[in-house]
Design a protein around this nucleic acid. Sequence first.
DNA 1: ACTAAATGGTTGAAGCATCAAGTTATCCGA
DNA 2: TCGGATAACTTGATGCTTCAACCATTTAGT
Lengths: 155, 155
Amino acid sequence: MAAWRSLVTLVQRAFPEIERDLRLNDGLQPAQYQIFVVLSEAPGRRLRLTDLACAADISPSRLTHRLRTLVDRGEVEIHPDPGDKRAKLAELTKKGQRRLEAAAPGHAATVRRVIFDHLTDQQSRAIAEALAPVIDSLCAHPEYLNPQDTVSEPT
Amino acid sequence: MAAWRSLVTLVQRAFPEIERDLRLNDGLQPAQYQIFVVLSEAPGRRLRLTDLACAADISPSRLTHRLRTLVDRGEVEIHPDPGDKRAKLAELTKKGQRRLEAAAPGHAATVRRVIFDHLTDQQSRAIAEALAPVIDSLCAHPEYLNPQDTVSEPT
DNA sequence: ACTAAATGGTTGAAGCATCAAGTTATCCGA
DNA sequence: TCGGATAACTTGATGCTTCAACCATTTAGT
């Protein structure tokens, strides 16, 4: 399958370059950047950790680990969820938002340079449309992010 | 950019699932599997390490680290390159080939289940075609795999 | 022929992701 | 209302990737 091979090459070559750029220019890891983006788009710039992890496509465990740094830096704050004592809310601070705004233009430019400058608008749209059902299916199987939740079938 | 967001989601959700499957069913890491595939397609099942790394889309350093395990298991052998005393040749052994053949069908099935079952043949082809120029560009910039080779511009 | 630069490959440390197991809180069935 | 199952989140260990620095060999310039 040529498409699969292309995807693997794309991921293994383009992603490291884009992530390196993000780290060198803005001191951000990819997971941190995604956390910022998701939070900035949330109402009140707040989200439950579970929802944040899901929207950012990372595992709860990874979220906890990455969040530690962001909280230490004062870019994200953690509040208790008033309605559920198990849950916590993450909130993007002003400082965090400034950091995101500083990084976004350069990051977008890198993504364009490495990938989308080589595609026509029509091709970009074709990719987005083709992937939509795959994304839907993936989001319907959240256990892919947290294999622990995979319950073994009864024999 | 919807296409970019889709790609990120695809990679962060689908790849871990596919890699987990490969590891649990066949005891192989993704990088090892790619090394096997590339070697099995090479003439004489042999390749210089540099060429192998490039064809498998991994950095030379990563190749060295992963190769250690494969050599210890007797699935790959390292020979000196007769024409260049700096270089080495990696060769896939019978044992390695058997392992690849055992893993391939299941791996292909997983990739299909997670991704391509949700796409029409036409969509798969559209993705492959759209990505071709991007892949070409990426392969023309091999320093993306080995940032050390990036020489800083003179001011 | 001699040296400087480039190529091929390796190494060890540092940092990140993953996993399994843990804690606390909520839900749901009897 | 009691108790087990599930949900939300955290933790620490393990293993992989990355990075910068390194050695050996080859190439190229003079």
